[in-house]
Design a protein around this nucleic acid. Structure first.
Lengths: 158, 158
DNA sequence: AAATAATGGTTACGTTTGCAACCATATCGT
DNA sequence: ACGATATGGTTGCAAACGTAACCATTATTT
């Protein structure tokens, strides 16, 4: 009989999603409260902060966000004067993005927040929990890497 | 110096979110293609299918969805004639939800799909990957359980 | 050197989301 | 018994999202 018991609680997509929401929303609350920033903005900031100068496209594939998300996040950060664009003079379609001084300052504060949060999580989940989780995630990430790039599966890239 | 390197790729909320999206979207694609169903609908169906009769509220906390999501999912499933409501006669605010025959049929097909997908995942991530992941998730789930209910952190419950 | 396709990035549009306000009923305090 | 408060559930609205269409520019084909 195939009808029988199916437990949502043991279904991996469900469990992952729930865990991700729990962990993610709590962190989002931190920086949302403090800087009124959205997740795409925070990710963009993080990408630029750590890698320095890069293009929108690069930000997208680095932090696996859809190009429209990136576009809007970049716009928002620009408004806030946390980043500035500059034209590539070889290829005029390309824009290079870079954090302003204020942006770098925000970045520093944000990653400090992130570090504290990660430490907090480590305490909550326990060393063994974290390690297991990390290994499990590594397995998925490997598959993601194989299974064509990041994740937004660019509607283009078919 | 606190400024230094922060790698988004090692930040847990980011990793979890990415993994969840990867695993979740792929599954969603399956049932979206086949039944034109959304995730809240699928979750509601799953909850009702496995537990039989329950209220919207119960569906919400069982599958950790916000009440509005549940409300809309229930409405959609009702339209499709996959579930029917019935008034509780002790408390007239309460509605009990139950799958129709068609709903149960759909449920059976869906969980079959889910099972196949889970198997597929197990193959992809490898036994050790799955086990690690499962342990890690368990650690988080434990914290979730403690840290007050499911996740939507009911705006009400403050 | 055109015509065609591809690429970086933005924009318009319909859908989905979360929040707050709301309705109806039920419970509690007094 | 009566007003305040709480609860299950729905709805209006504004923000966030993904898709597809689009603009400008660069590559490729012929």
């Amino acid at each position: 009989m195939t009808t029988d018991s199916f437990a949502l609680e043991q279904f991996l997509p469900y469990r992952l999603n729930r865990a991700a929401e729990f962990v993610g929303l709590r962190f989002a609350a931190h920086y949302k409260a403090k800087y009124g920033m959205t997740r795409p903005e925070w990710r963009t900031l993080a990408a630029l902060g750590s890698s320095g100068r890069m293009t929108s496209k690069a930000v997208g594939s680095h932090s696996s966000m859809h190009k429209t998300k990136v576009s809007r996040a970049v716009f928002a950060l620009e408004q806030r004067r946390w980043l500035k664009r500059s034209q590539d003079d070889a290829d005029r379609r390309v824009e290079h993005l870079e954090l302003t001084a204020a942006g770098q300052q925000a970045y520093r504060e944000l990653i400090e927040l992130a570090r504290r949060y990660q430490t907090e999580l480590e305490a909550e989940f326990g060393e063994s929990g974290i390690e297991a989780l990390s290994n499990g995630l590594a397995a998925i990430e490997q598959v993601i890497r194989r299974s064509g790039k990041g994740k937004p599966s660019e509607p283009d890239d078919l």
